[in-house]
Design a protein around this nucleic acid. Sequence first.
DNA 1: CGGTCATTAGAACGATCGTTATAGTGCGAG
DNA 2: CTCGCACTATAACGATCGTTCTAATGACCG
Lengths: 199, 199
Amino acid sequence: MGTTEVDTRERIVAATSALFMQQGYSATGLKAIAKAGRATTGSLYHFFPGGKAELAAATLRHSGRGYEELVMSVIDGAPDVVTGLRACFAAAADLLRATDYVDACPIATVALEVASSDEPLRQVIDEVFRSWLDAAARRLAADGVPEERAQELAIVFVAALEGGFLLSRVARDASAMESVGRAVVAAVEDALAEARRGS
Amino acid sequence: MGTTEVDTRERIVAATSALFMQQGYSATGLKAIAKAGRATTGSLYHFFPGGKAELAAATLRHSGRGYEELVMSVIDGAPDVVTGLRACFAAAADLLRATDYVDACPIATVALEVASSDEPLRQVIDEVFRSWLDAAARRLAADGVPEERAQELAIVFVAALEGGFLLSRVARDASAMESVGRAVVAAVEDALAEARRGS
DNA sequence: CGGTCATTAGAACGATCGTTATAGTGCGAG
DNA sequence: CTCGCACTATAACGATCGTTCTAATGACCG
C-alpha cells in the first residue's frame, strides 16, 4: 500500500492551492490542476468523487489549517504577542516580495468569489476563518488582553492581514502590509497598556 | 442621438458590476452580463470592442469612482473626519445587512483574481486603489493629521474596509465591519491627539 | 500462479466559454 | 424619399469547461 496514494492526494491539494492563489476558483480548470499536480482526470475523481467542489473544500481546509499553524508558530516563537505580531506582518511582507506578490492567501480569493454564490464553500471558509479568529483571540487573551477586547483585536488582525495582502498584491509593493501591521501592533499595545492600568 | 446608447452602455456596466460582486470576474459570462443588462452580444461588442477585458476595465473604473465619491461624500457630510469615518463603517455594515451580504466591493473580488494573472486589469485596479488612498490621505491631512501619518492611516482605512467586507460576507455577520471600524477610528483619534500635543 | 482492488490513463460527453460574422433594424441628415 | 450609420439580433465558431466512462495498470493476498 505504501504512501503513494497519500502523496498524490496531497500533491493535488497543493497544486490546487497554488492555482487558487493566483487565479481564484472559477478560473482554475480541473485539467490545469491535474497537470500541475502530475495527475490525470481519472485520478482526480478517484480521490475527490465530489468533483471540483469537494476538491476545493479539501484545499481550503488544508490551506486554512496550514496558515493557522504557521501564524501561531511565528507568534509563539516570539517572547510576547506584540513582537510576535510584528514578526507576522514582517514575514508576510517578505513573502510577498520574495514571490513576486503571488504567494498570499488563496482562501480570501476564493472567499470573495463564492461568498454569495456557493453556500457549501462559503460555510467551509466560514469555519476556517472562525478557527483563525478563535486561535488569535485565545493567544491575545493569554498575554493579558481582556476577553472581549481580544476577540475584537483578533478580527482586526485577520482583516488587516487580508487587507494588506490585497493592497500589496495590487500595488506590487509590500509597504501596505507593513503599514497595517504597525496599526495592529499599536492597537494591541494600547489594549495591553489599558489592561495593566485599569481594572 | 438622444441618450439611448449612453443608457445601454451604463446599464451594461452596472450589470457587470453587480455580477462581479457576487461571482467575480471569471465566473461571470458575457451571456449573463448581456441578459442582466438587457443587451445582446452584438450590442455588447459594439460598446466594448475589446471584449470582456475592456468591459471589465470600464466597470472597475466606474465602480472605483462611484465608491470613492460615495465614501468622500459620507465623510464630508460629517462635522469632522473621525465621525465621518465612523459613519462610513456604520453605513458599510448596514449595507451588508440590508443586501444579505451581497453588496460589497466588486473591485476587491476581481483584484485578488487577476492581481497575478492579468496585468492590464491589475494596473487598472492599482490606479483605482491609488486614487482612493490619495483622496483619503488628503482628507485626513485636511483635518490635521501629519502628511506621512495620513498616508499610512489611509492605507489602514482601505485595508480595514476590504478586510471587513471579506470577514463579514463570509460570516454573514456585519459585526466584523464594526470591529475594524472602531480600530480605525481609534487609530485616527490617536494620530490627531498626538498631532495636537506634539510638534 | 490467479484474482482482487486501488489507482491511473485517456477518450468522449454535452454545455458553456469568449469571440466573430452577417443580416437587419430604425432614425437623422441631405 | 433615400442614403448612411449607429445599434441590435442571432447564429455559429473553436476552445475549454466539469464530468463520466471504459480499459488498463500494478501491487498485494491466497
